[in-house]
Design a protein around this nucleic acid. Structure first.
Lengths: 140, 140
DNA sequence: CTACATCCTCTAGCGACTAGAGGTGCAAGA
DNA sequence: TCTTGCACCTCTAGTCGCTAGAGGATGTAG
């Protein structure tokens, strides 16, 4: 029964204090009990939940997806197909984003390498931005 | 002197009509002349600027960076070192983002592959989210 | 002349926080 | 006991880059 303050919960979870209060406000985290002086007092289970949320956010899951994942975690006897679907959807997104960023990287490298560090009117960076036709990949 | 409406500018630039007005509001695009009936009337140079902006946004440059790039474009005799620096900074960001997304991809793949499609209490997706210690890369 | 698309301005909303104002609680040192 | 000083409280408003909608004016084709 070692209850902790919001500051301690922030330290142990890596989620900032105002963000914890924000999560409570949007109903992602239950409202904890309060001390005599009206201060939030968290139990170990709250901390676990907070760490779960932080980890999911780091992996890029949206708050709504996390809400679903948390409700699944609360009902361990349910089939986990929806958790799987959420993770798979996120995987597809991430793969897409990597492909697109890799194309951008190529463009930026071309710009930077082509720049002779002269005046703006000879600058390849400005030139490429002004004329999409000079891009290697037109997908973006 | 073939002036065009905002709708036509949107079609030719790929920037949506409300977004064009938004760019004017934040001073990224100059306010164009108006028709008798108070409708915006764009010149070819405005269209070029709009295409420049769209392209830069596609490459992930922030509006403030684009503001600088545009002011450089307006002064072609200046040295292009700052344009170069902006592009380089963006390149570093993109490379960082790719690295981080690649790590996330690995996590997600492990989650999805490990999932036996049973009940939530055996689900690897939920399990990994609850316990960061199971991640392959701890960098995120 | 009448539809109907397109244009206008203005305000509010999105996601996921973050910052700040203005006030209260609490623990430790003098 | 008093005071210092940090951590906590609530509430509102701001961030970024748009996007949506209300409510009305303009422009064009049949």
């Amino acid at each position: 029964m070692k209850k902790i303050t919001i500051g301690e919960a922030a330290r142990q979870s890596g989620v900032k204090v105002p963000t914890i209060r924000y999560y409570e406000g949007i109903g992602l985290l239950r409202a904890p009990s309060r001390s005599d002086g009206n201060q939030r007092s968290y139990e170990p289970s709250d901390l676990k939940r907070l760490i779960f949320i932080r980890h999911a956010r780091e992996l890029g899951f949206e708050v709504e997806a996390i809400r679903t994942l948390l409700s699944l975690q609360d009902n361990p006897l349910q089939p986990c197909a929806s958790a799987d679907a959420i993770a798979k959807a996120r995987l597809v997104e991430v793969e897409q984003r990597i492909r697109s960023l890799t194309a951008l990287k190529a463009e930026l490298e071309m710009m930077v390498e082509g720049c002779v560090h002269g005046r703006v009117d000879q600058c390849r960076v400005i030139e490429v931005l002004a004329d999409h036709g000079q891009c290697a990949h037109h997908g973006h």
